[in-house]
Simulated assay, not measured.
Amino acid sequence: MKYRTVFDIIGPVMIGPSSSHTAGAARIGRTARTVFGRVPKEIIITLYGSFAKTYRGHGTDIALVGGILDFDTYDERMPLSLQMAKKAGIDVRFVESEEIADHPNTARIHLSDDQGKLEVVGISIGGGKIEIVELNGFELKLSGNSPTLLVLHKDQFGAVADVATILAKHEINIGYMQVARKEKGLEALMSIETDQSVTPELLKEIRQKSGMYSVTVLNN
């Protein structure tokens, strides 16, 4: 096994007792917040497997909500996340599922407000590392280790080419790309891992193309 940094061995800088149940959970929550783009009014978190059985003792509930509040793993406000969410008027609910998930450390996060809603499924794979495996019903496999461009768009001719052309114009190399759709001609999702950072100017160019509904970058 190859390690990219020393933190792959000793784990992340964090507040909490467990890299998988606390740091990983915080990163799942923060990824959901980044995609949603704002503070939600309602948070519903469904927990599976080990998460469902131990989330209170390991602080998984605190970490998930802290991430949704945009706290990093080492943020000193993390232990107060539940109180801070309540004070902000955010409705937070946890559901303990008995359903057997593909991975024991799985959380399904539903965020909503008057402007819209989002559902993200993430797993904590150990050492603070995560994978996002579902976004609004689209199956994914996002590690968060590289800048990742998420483009929700109309399933139409030329959409993928438009995005690829803009990336090439800005000299951005694609490391991995996945395109999924629910039904022909409706919504589709591009997830693109890049070797370079994605600039706000590039995001603006993509948003201006026909049929682009939402454009977000993770871990830039």
Rank of each mutant, 00 (worst) to 15 (best):
H153L: 09
T106H: 01
S124L: 02
D113L: 07
Y176M: 12
K117Y: 13
T106D: 00
A180K: 15
A161V: 13
F157Y: 08
S146I: 08
I109V: 12
L118W: 10
E96G: 09
A180M: 15
A107W: 03
E171P: 02
I132M: 04
V160T: 12
L142A: 01
L118D: 07
F138T: 04
E139R: 15
L135I: 08
D155C: 11
S112I: 05
Q178V: 14
V120S: 02
H170M: 06
E134S: 07
S143K: 07
A88R: 12
D162C: 09
I123N: 00
G126E: 06
V95E: 01
E131N: 05
K117V: 09
H110G: 10
V133F: 03
I132F: 06
P104D: 06
S143Q: 08
I109K: 00
I123R: 00
L111T: 10
V160G: 07
Q156K: 11
L118I: 11
K129T: 06
K87I: 07
N105T: 05
Y176F: 11
E99L: 03
I90P: 05
G175W: 13
I100R: 05
D162L: 10
I174A: 07
R93V: 07
A164C: 13
L142P: 00
E139C: 09
Q156V: 14
G127M: 05
I109F: 01
L111G: 14
H103C: 03
E134N: 09
I172E: 02
A88W: 01
A161G: 10
D102N: 11
E131G: 00
R93C: 07
V163K: 12
S97Y: 13
F157V: 05
P147D: 01
H110V: 10
I130P: 00
G89N: 02
Y176L: 12
L135F: 07
H170Q: 03
Q178M: 15
E139Y: 08
T165A: 11
G144M: 02
E171G: 03
K169L: 12
R108L: 03
P147R: 06
P147Q: 03
A159H: 10
N145I: 10
N173S: 11
H110D: 08
N105D: 07
A164H: 14
E134K: 08
E96Y: 15
A161F: 15
L149V: 02
Y176C: 09
L118K: 04
E131H: 04
R93P: 13
A161T: 11
I132C: 03
S112Y: 07
Q156S: 12
R93G: 06
D155W: 14
I172A: 08
Y176Q: 11
S124N: 03
T165S: 14
V95T: 04
G122R: 00
V120F: 06
K169N: 08
E134Q: 08
L111A: 10
Q115T: 14
V92C: 04
E99Q: 03
